[in-house]
Protein backbone atom coordinates (compact mmCIF):
# COMPACT_ATOMS: atom_id res chain seq x y z
CA UNK A 1 0.00 0.00 0.00
CA UNK A 2 1.26 3.44 -0.82
CA UNK A 3 2.24 5.56 2.14
CA UNK A 4 1.69 8.71 0.13
CA UNK A 5 -1.67 10.28 1.04
CA UNK A 6 -4.06 11.20 -1.76
CA UNK A 7 -3.78 14.88 -1.07
CA UNK A 8 0.01 14.96 -1.39
CA UNK A 9 1.16 16.98 -4.38
CA UNK A 10 2.59 15.04 -7.28
CA UNK A 11 6.22 14.26 -6.96
CA UNK A 12 8.39 16.57 -9.01
CA UNK A 13 11.65 14.68 -9.06
CA UNK A 14 14.11 15.09 -11.88
CA UNK A 15 13.00 11.71 -13.19
CA UNK A 16 9.40 12.90 -13.59
CA UNK A 17 10.45 15.92 -15.56
CA UNK A 18 12.64 13.97 -17.93
CA UNK A 19 11.91 14.83 -21.51
CA UNK A 20 10.09 18.02 -20.61
CA UNK A 21 11.47 20.96 -22.56
CA UNK A 22 13.83 23.14 -20.61
CA UNK A 23 12.66 26.71 -20.24
CA UNK A 24 14.57 28.97 -22.57
CA UNK A 25 16.60 31.44 -20.56
CA UNK A 26 15.44 34.99 -21.17
CA UNK A 27 18.36 37.33 -21.64
CA UNK A 28 18.62 40.02 -18.99
CA UNK A 29 17.36 43.22 -20.59
CA UNK A 30 19.90 45.98 -21.01
CA UNK A 31 19.28 49.26 -19.25
CA UNK A 32 16.78 51.64 -20.80
CA UNK A 33 19.20 54.48 -20.27
CA UNK A 34 22.92 54.11 -19.79
CA UNK A 35 25.22 57.00 -18.95
CA UNK A 36 28.90 56.23 -19.33
CA UNK A 37 31.67 58.51 -18.05
CA UNK A 38 29.59 61.64 -18.44
CA UNK A 39 31.36 64.94 -17.83
CA UNK A 40 29.49 68.18 -18.27
CA UNK A 41 30.73 71.76 -18.43
CA UNK A 42 28.96 75.10 -18.24
CA UNK A 43 31.67 77.15 -19.93
CA UNK A 44 34.75 76.42 -17.85
CA UNK A 45 32.79 75.21 -14.84
CA UNK A 46 32.62 71.45 -14.62
CA UNK A 47 29.22 70.41 -13.25
CA UNK A 48 29.44 66.63 -13.67
CA UNK A 49 32.43 64.38 -13.17
CA UNK A 50 32.66 61.00 -14.82
CA UNK A 51 29.15 59.81 -14.05
CA UNK A 52 28.24 56.29 -15.07
CA UNK A 53 24.73 55.24 -14.22
CA UNK A 54 22.24 52.74 -15.62
CA UNK A 55 18.50 53.19 -15.45
CA UNK A 56 16.59 49.96 -15.86
CA UNK A 57 13.34 49.79 -17.76
CA UNK A 58 10.15 50.00 -15.68
CA UNK A 59 11.96 51.20 -12.59
CA UNK A 60 11.83 54.55 -10.88
CA UNK A 61 15.29 55.97 -10.29
CA UNK A 62 15.61 58.84 -7.82
CA UNK A 63 18.49 61.29 -7.93
CA UNK A 64 19.19 62.94 -4.61
CA UNK A 65 21.87 65.28 -3.34
CA UNK A 66 22.33 68.81 -2.02
CA UNK A 67 21.59 71.86 -4.17
CA UNK A 68 24.11 72.35 -6.91
CA UNK A 69 25.31 68.73 -6.86
CA UNK A 70 24.45 68.28 -10.54
CA UNK A 71 21.38 66.09 -10.32
CA UNK A 72 19.21 68.36 -12.48
CA UNK A 73 22.10 68.90 -14.89
CA UNK A 74 22.43 65.15 -15.25
CA UNK A 75 18.70 64.73 -15.80
CA UNK A 76 18.69 67.48 -18.42
CA UNK A 77 21.42 65.71 -20.37
CA UNK A 78 19.25 62.65 -20.78
CA UNK A 79 16.93 64.37 -23.26
CA UNK A 80 19.47 66.99 -24.36
CA UNK A 81 17.61 69.96 -22.92
CA UNK A 82 21.09 71.14 -21.93
CA UNK A 83 21.95 71.51 -25.62
CA UNK A 84 20.13 74.83 -25.47
CA UNK A 85 22.54 76.17 -22.82
CA UNK A 86 25.14 78.35 -24.47
CA UNK A 87 28.80 77.33 -24.01
CA UNK A 88 27.86 74.01 -22.46
CA UNK A 89 29.60 70.82 -23.39
CA UNK A 90 29.07 67.16 -22.58
CA UNK A 91 31.65 64.41 -22.73
CA UNK A 92 30.99 60.71 -22.42
CA UNK A 93 28.01 58.78 -23.68
CA UNK A 94 24.33 58.52 -22.93
CA UNK A 95 22.55 55.61 -24.55
CA UNK A 96 18.80 55.22 -24.91
CA UNK A 97 18.08 51.61 -25.85
CA UNK A 98 21.74 51.30 -26.83
CA UNK A 99 21.53 54.29 -29.16
CA UNK A 100 23.57 57.43 -28.53
CA UNK A 101 21.12 60.22 -27.68
CA UNK A 102 23.28 62.63 -29.67
CA UNK A 103 22.64 60.62 -32.78
CA UNK A 104 18.88 60.58 -32.36
CA UNK A 105 16.81 63.36 -33.93
CA UNK A 106 16.29 65.73 -31.02
CA UNK A 107 12.54 66.17 -31.55
CA UNK A 108 12.10 62.44 -31.67
CA UNK A 109 14.32 62.06 -28.60
CA UNK A 110 12.23 64.48 -26.57
CA UNK A 111 9.04 62.72 -27.60
CA UNK A 112 10.52 59.46 -26.34
CA UNK A 113 12.00 61.07 -23.23
CA UNK A 114 9.41 63.40 -21.72
CA UNK A 115 10.12 65.92 -19.01
CA UNK A 116 8.21 67.66 -16.24
CA UNK A 117 9.72 70.62 -14.41
CA UNK A 118 9.63 72.00 -10.91
CA UNK A 119 7.17 74.77 -11.73
CA UNK A 120 4.12 73.72 -13.70
CA UNK A 121 4.36 75.29 -17.16
CA UNK A 122 1.09 74.72 -18.99
CA UNK A 123 0.64 76.42 -22.37
CA UNK A 124 -1.57 79.51 -22.32
CA UNK A 125 -4.33 77.48 -23.87
CA UNK A 126 -7.30 75.41 -22.77
CA UNK A 127 -6.85 72.23 -20.77
CA UNK A 128 -7.86 70.22 -23.84
CA UNK A 129 -5.42 72.04 -26.13
CA UNK A 130 -2.55 71.50 -23.71
CA UNK A 131 -2.86 67.77 -24.18
CA UNK A 132 -3.92 67.80 -27.81
CA UNK A 133 -0.97 69.95 -28.88
CA UNK A 134 1.69 67.25 -28.69
CA UNK A 135 -0.58 64.73 -30.35
CA UNK A 136 -1.26 67.12 -33.21
CA UNK A 137 2.30 68.13 -33.97
CA UNK A 138 3.41 64.53 -33.78
CA UNK A 139 0.54 63.44 -36.00
CA UNK A 140 -0.43 60.94 -33.37
CA UNK A 141 -4.21 61.31 -33.45
CA UNK A 142 -6.92 61.92 -35.98
CA UNK A 143 -9.52 64.51 -35.12
CA UNK A 144 -12.00 61.78 -34.27
CA UNK A 145 -9.58 60.08 -31.87
CA UNK A 146 -8.39 63.24 -30.22
CA UNK A 147 -10.99 63.43 -27.48
CA UNK A 148 -10.40 59.82 -26.42
CA UNK A 149 -6.67 60.29 -26.32
CA UNK A 150 -6.93 63.48 -24.31
CA UNK A 151 -9.24 61.76 -21.86
CA UNK A 152 -6.89 58.80 -21.51
CA UNK A 153 -3.90 61.02 -20.75
CA UNK A 154 -5.87 63.00 -18.20
CA UNK A 155 -7.06 59.80 -16.58
CA UNK A 156 -3.50 58.44 -16.39
CA UNK A 157 -2.45 61.63 -14.65
CA UNK A 158 -5.37 61.27 -12.19
CA UNK A 159 -6.79 64.61 -13.31
CA UNK A 160 -9.77 63.62 -15.45
CA UNK A 161 -12.45 63.66 -12.77
CA UNK A 162 -11.47 67.16 -11.70
CA UNK A 163 -11.42 68.73 -15.16
CA UNK A 164 -13.84 66.73 -17.32
CA UNK A 165 -16.51 69.45 -17.15
CA UNK A 166 -14.18 72.32 -17.99
CA UNK A 167 -11.87 70.99 -20.68
CA UNK A 168 -12.11 74.18 -22.71
CA UNK A 169 -11.30 76.53 -19.87
CA UNK A 170 -7.82 77.99 -19.57
CA UNK A 171 -5.20 75.75 -18.01
CA UNK A 172 -4.18 78.74 -15.90
CA UNK A 173 -7.46 78.47 -14.02
CA UNK A 174 -6.28 75.22 -12.44
CA UNK A 175 -4.58 74.97 -9.06
CA UNK A 176 -0.81 74.41 -8.90
CA UNK A 177 -1.21 70.70 -8.21
CA UNK A 178 -3.69 70.34 -11.05
CA UNK A 179 -1.42 72.28 -13.41
CA UNK A 180 1.45 69.96 -12.52
CA UNK A 181 -0.67 66.91 -13.23
CA UNK A 182 -1.75 68.56 -16.48
CA UNK A 183 1.90 68.88 -17.45
CA UNK A 184 2.39 65.21 -16.63
CA UNK A 185 -0.69 64.35 -18.69
CA UNK A 186 0.74 66.44 -21.54
CA UNK A 187 4.02 64.55 -21.32
CA UNK A 188 2.21 61.21 -21.19
CA UNK A 189 -0.01 61.99 -24.19
CA UNK A 190 2.77 61.25 -26.67
CA UNK A 191 3.56 57.90 -25.03
CA UNK A 192 7.08 58.61 -23.82
CA UNK A 193 9.30 55.66 -23.00
CA UNK A 194 11.08 57.61 -20.30
CA UNK A 195 9.71 60.34 -18.07
CA UNK A 196 12.10 62.77 -16.39
CA UNK A 197 10.72 64.63 -13.38
CA UNK A 198 12.71 67.53 -11.98
CA UNK A 199 11.41 68.30 -8.49
CA UNK A 200 7.82 67.78 -9.66
CA UNK A 201 6.25 68.19 -6.22
CA UNK A 202 8.31 70.92 -4.62
CA UNK A 203 5.61 73.54 -5.13
CA UNK A 204 2.68 71.29 -4.25
CA UNK A 205 0.63 70.56 -1.15
CA UNK A 206 0.66 67.06 0.41
CA UNK A 207 -2.57 65.98 -1.29
CA UNK A 208 -1.32 66.87 -4.77
CA UNK A 209 2.06 65.37 -3.89
CA UNK A 210 0.41 62.11 -2.87
CA UNK A 211 -1.48 62.00 -6.18
CA UNK A 212 1.68 62.51 -8.18
CA UNK A 213 3.53 59.91 -6.17
CA UNK A 214 0.75 57.40 -6.79
CA UNK A 215 0.98 58.27 -10.45
CA UNK A 216 4.71 57.60 -10.51
CA UNK A 217 4.18 54.16 -9.02
CA UNK A 218 1.55 53.39 -11.64
CA UNK A 219 3.71 54.71 -14.47
CA UNK A 220 6.30 52.04 -13.85
CA UNK A 221 4.28 49.55 -15.87
CA UNK A 222 4.55 51.65 -19.03
CA UNK A 223 7.52 53.96 -18.51
CA UNK A 224 10.98 54.28 -17.10
CA UNK A 225 10.99 57.15 -14.64
CA UNK A 226 13.81 59.31 -13.31
CA UNK A 227 13.03 61.82 -10.60
CA UNK A 228 15.15 64.53 -9.05
CA UNK A 229 13.97 65.38 -5.57
CA UNK A 230 15.10 67.15 -2.44
CA UNK A 231 12.51 65.29 -0.46
CA UNK A 232 14.19 62.12 0.74
CA UNK A 233 10.99 60.64 2.09
CA UNK A 234 9.59 61.06 -1.39
CA UNK A 235 12.58 59.33 -2.97
CA UNK A 236 12.16 56.55 -0.41
CA UNK A 237 8.45 56.18 -1.13
CA UNK A 238 8.42 56.17 -4.92
CA UNK A 239 11.76 54.96 -6.22
CA UNK A 240 13.25 51.52 -6.77
CA UNK A 241 16.81 52.74 -7.10
CA UNK A 242 18.37 55.84 -5.59
CA UNK A 243 21.52 57.60 -6.73
CA UNK A 244 23.29 60.07 -4.45
CA UNK A 245 25.28 62.84 -6.12
CA UNK A 246 27.67 65.24 -4.44
CA UNK A 247 29.65 68.02 -6.06
CA UNK A 248 29.01 66.63 -9.51
CA UNK A 249 30.09 63.09 -8.66
CA UNK A 250 28.02 59.97 -8.27
CA UNK A 251 28.76 58.76 -4.75
CA UNK A 252 26.50 55.77 -4.51
CA UNK A 253 23.67 54.13 -6.44
CA UNK A 254 21.78 51.27 -4.80
CA UNK A 255 18.31 49.80 -4.32
CA UNK A 256 16.36 52.46 -2.45
CA UNK A 257 15.59 50.38 0.64
CA UNK A 258 19.27 49.60 1.08
CA UNK A 259 20.45 53.14 0.53
CA UNK A 260 18.08 54.55 3.12
CA UNK A 261 18.60 51.90 5.79
CA UNK A 262 22.26 51.08 5.35
CA UNK A 263 24.17 53.32 2.96
CA UNK A 264 27.66 52.19 2.02
CA UNK A 265 29.35 55.57 1.85
CA UNK A 266 29.72 57.80 4.94
CA UNK A 267 28.93 60.86 2.80
CA UNK A 268 25.57 59.35 1.86
CA UNK A 269 24.94 58.57 5.52
CA UNK A 270 25.78 62.15 6.52
CA UNK A 271 23.48 63.56 3.87
CA UNK A 272 20.43 61.40 4.44
CA UNK A 273 20.64 61.71 8.22
CA UNK A 274 20.82 65.48 7.92
CA UNK A 275 24.36 65.79 9.35
CA UNK A 276 25.84 67.05 6.15
CA UNK A 277 28.42 69.81 6.14
Amino acid sequence: MSTVPDYAPESKTAQDRKGAPLPTPTPAPGPKLRATNVNFFYGTFQALYDISLDMQEHLVTALIGPSGCGKSTFLRNLNRINDTVRNSRMEGKILLDNEDVREVDVTNLRRRVGMVFQRPNPFPKSIFENIAYGLKINGMAKRSEMRDKVERSLRRAALWDEVKDKLHESAYALSGGQQQRLCIARALAVNPEVLLLDEPCSALDPVSTAKIEELMLQLRSSCTVAIVTHNMQQAARVSDVTAFLLEGKLIECRPTAQLFTNPADPRTEAYITGRFG
Partner: peptide, 9 residues
Protein backbone atom coordinates in the same frame (compact mmCIF):
# COMPACT_ATOMS: atom_id res chain seq x y z
CA UNK B 1 12.31 63.35 12.58
CA UNK B 2 11.67 60.68 9.95
CA UNK B 3 15.18 59.35 10.49
CA UNK B 4 17.24 57.53 7.92
CA UNK B 5 20.17 55.12 7.89
CA UNK B 6 21.98 54.76 11.26
CA UNK B 7 19.38 56.94 13.01
CA UNK B 8 16.57 54.78 11.68
CA UNK B 9 18.36 51.60 12.72
Amino acid sequence: QQPMAADLR
